[in-house]
Amino acid sequence: MEATTAAQTTLTKKEQPRDKRRVLRFMWKYKALYLLSLPGILYFLIFKYIPLMGSVIAFQNYNLFAGFSGSPWVGLEHFTRMFSHYDFLNILKNTLLLGIYDITFAFTAPIILALLLNEVRMVLYKKVVQTVIYAPHFLSWVIVSGIFIGVLSPSSGVANTMLGWFGLGPIYFLGEDSYIRSVLVGSGLWRDVGWGTIIYLAALASINPDLYEAAEMDGAGRWRQMLSITLPALLPVITILFLLKMGDFLDYGFERVFVFQNPLNIRNSEILDTYIYKAGLTQMQYSYATAIGLFKSVVGLFLLAIANTLSKKATGESLY
């Protein structure tokens, strides 16, 4: 028995250099692809992974002049302070609500729009529509906010002008807490819905046309074809994008909220990202802001793990 185990160990050791050589030959064969991927790898390494080491300041009273090594350790003090903050629950509630609204509307709208565009048979009209709905994505949030502030203006905005046609008084959409979340979600939907259809349209283009022809011969209409062919073909893409979205659930975006904020709507528009900016940069509480950011990351990882597990069991699709 011992001789057999020793022989197996010897064979394993002999196979290891062979496996290494096989991997090196594979990498050399596809060296062009590895070189093309190198900038992306360096980007994530330099700007995503190396900065993770800075998360250590969440457990310190960080001092710019003392650095990581000279700053005193305080343990979970900043996390305790975060949870005991008088407005933290409201800020977290705003972030969660906007995240839920974003998944409910902003995530599903590109799917619906892609399905509608897929049914358009006039190629020229389809291309024009695609170009028009893609265009807002390339506008900065400062410009988008300027457009929406003008459209929603209580004195000269198009929205209030139309309300006046029905005998309704003007509404200050950006000056009332009850409307600000709708404005934030609506502006994001207008800006990014077209851009979100690109991946879905690419997936739709890869569906074999013979499937539609066979379904049509069997008497299936367009609605039945969409339910039986189009949606199942899109399901893997939808699942992967949904899982990625869950990882960023609390990352609603600083700039898209900050440009619409004012003292009148701050109660319902303050989210973790804007609070981190105010605490970390304007008040220079770097350790406290890092603790909040670390909390966001941990929650995102937790949600991603749960969603990935449920997806693997329900659909067989997962990130890992």
Rank of each mutant, 00 (worst) to 15 (best):
M162R: 09
A32T: 15
T4K: 14
S71N: 04
Y101S: 06
K93D: 01
D251A: 15
F138A: 09
S187C: 09
T9I: 13
R256H: 07
V129Q: 03
F68A: 06
S84Q: 09
F65Q: 12
K245L: 11
Y288W: 14
L264I: 05
Y288H: 05
A314V: 15
A106W: 09
V74R: 04
I238M: 08
Q285A: 06
V142H: 10
R121V: 12
S269M: 07
F258V: 10
H78R: 05
D248H: 11
F107I: 06
A205R: 08
F65I: 12
W73L: 11
F295K: 04
D218F: 08
Y43C: 06
N118W: 07
P110H: 04
Y125N: 08
L96R: 03
D218T: 09
P236A: 14
R81S: 07
T230R: 11
P232D: 03
S55N: 13
V193L: 14
M122T: 10
S155G: 11
M27H: 09
R267S: 11
L168A: 13
G316V: 15
I266E: 09
G67C: 06
N63L: 12
S55V: 07
M284D: 10
L11V: 11
L235W: 01
Y320F: 14
S84Y: 08
E176K: 13
I292L: 08
L174S: 00
A6I: 10
G196Y: 01
T131H: 14
G221Y: 09
Y43F: 13
I199G: 00
L211V: 06
R224F: 09
T5F: 14
L113T: 07
I100K: 13
Y134I: 05
I133S: 03
F302Q: 04
F68Q: 06
L184M: 05
P136S: 06
F148R: 01
A66Y: 08
P170Q: 02
I112L: 10
L241H: 13
F26C: 08
E2D: 12
H137W: 13
L139T: 02
G167V: 02
W190H: 02
A6R: 13
V123S: 11
Q225L: 08
I276W: 00
F65E: 12
F260V: 03
F88K: 03
W28D: 07
W195R: 04
K278L: 13
K126W: 11
G40A: 13
S155M: 12
N118T: 05
E255P: 00
L98N: 00
L281N: 07
I306P: 00
Q16V: 15
Y86E: 10
D251S: 13
S182M: 15
M217K: 14
A289M: 07
E77N: 10
G188Q: 00
L234Q: 02
S140A: 08
W141I: 03
Q261A: 13
F88T: 08
